[in-house]
């Protein structure tokens, strides 16, 4: 009897100790099968002279890294990536929080509104690219036609780097704002209503409540959205590629992003798999660095405002 009890206690202790690892193991097992090999393979490729079709050549150490760091196109791609990233993520996250806040009210026909904002996420890319091509066409496009009516000069959506970045960011925001709004909404719904009640009793108005209750309580979700959109934003590929029919980022590469640069190096005219792999690793490190910075900024902002709320 006594022995049995200890055995079950021991089993229970094992349960407590092992279960957390067991629960997270599916992710790691799968990662070691389908994620780790590509990562190691890419690192291996990046230190070789490696033609996409011709295959492995001599080991060249860090030559590929040094080569791409001397290419003006690398820095152009870096600039474009950050510019499009900032133009898309910042307004996107802000708009998503506001839309989520509106959706969090006691609306009539809730399902309709919620699913309505998510619609852009399901539209096939071929339809999206066609529509935006018509909107941002330089000569026959909708926006320039409107500008003409208003009497201003048309914008060179493809010629001017900044205009191109704005147009691409618009495509990104169109697709992902509703998606992020629903993520925020799910988190807002989990905020206990008593806290709002308390704020209202304290005499806080709607916007006060929003900034002193909602935003601090959303902290983990804001961190989540900021980090995932940092990662997604710095890897942006589809939208700038679809921005014209050639898909190389413009004659001056004025909207070529880093992932497009990887593609151009590896699959384009050069077929230099080695250099493409080197840029991949550089991009990986850049994303990690920016992710960490964003994490620290977000954490300090939302904890300082939650400090105010806690008063």
């Amino acid at each position: 009897m006594n022995q049995q009890l200890t055995r079950s206690q021991r089993l229970s202790r094992l349960d407590v100790k092992a279960s957390p690892y067991l629960y997270i193991s599916p992710f790691f097992i799968l990662f070691f099968i389908v994620g780790l090999f590509p990562l190691v393979y890419t690192a291996w490729v990046s230190v070789h002279d490696w033609h996409l079709i011709g295959g492995q050549g001599e080991m060249v150490g860090l030559t590929n890294y040094i080569d791409v760091l001397q290419q003006p196109n690398f820095f152009k791609a870096l600039r474009n990536t950050f510019s499009i990233f900032l133009l898309s993520s910042v307004p996107q996250v802000l708009a998503a929080i506001v839309i989520a806040y509106l959706l969090d009210t006691n609306l009539r026909a809730k399902t309709f509104w919620r699913m309505g904002v998510l619609l852009p996420y399901v539209v096939a890319p071929v339809a999206v690219s066609l529509i935006f091509a018509k909107i941002f066409a330089d000569q026959s496009g909708l926006v320039n036609a409107v500008l003409e009516i208003l009497g201003t000069s048309p914008i060179g959506w493809h010629a001017d780097p900044f205009a191109a970045h704005v147009a691409i960011a618009t495509m990104v925001n169109f697709r992902w704002t509703g998606y992020n709004a629903l993520i925020f909404l799910a988190a807002m719904q989990a905020i206990p209503r008593e806290i709002y009640e308390a704020a209202i009793i304290d005499g806080a108005n709607r916007w006060r409540t929003f900034f002193s209750v909602t935003v601090p309580m959303l902290r983990p979700t804001i961190i989540f959205v900021v980090i995932t959109s940092t990662i997604g934003g710095l890897q942006i590929f589809d939208e700038p590629r679809m921005f014209d029919t050639l898909g190389q980022g413009g004659a001056d590469r004025q909207w070529m992003t880093l992932t497009m640069y990887i593609y151009e190096l590896g699959w384009g005219a050069q077929k230099s798999f080695g250099r493409a792999a080197a840029v991949s690793w550089l991009l990986f490190l850049i994303i990690i660095a920016v992710g960490v910075i964003n994490f620290l900024i977000t954490r300090s902002i939302s904890s300082s405002s939650s400090g105010k709320a806690g008063r």
Partner: peptide, 22 residues
């Protein structure tokens, strides 16, 4: 081996002045 990389340079140059006008 470098035909397309090189042809692209001139095509880009022509697009800069013909299409984009920069």
């Amino acid at each position: 081996p470098n035909y397309f990389a090189l042809a692209q340079l001139v095509t880009d140059a022509l697009n800069r002045l013909d299409v984009e006008g920069t």
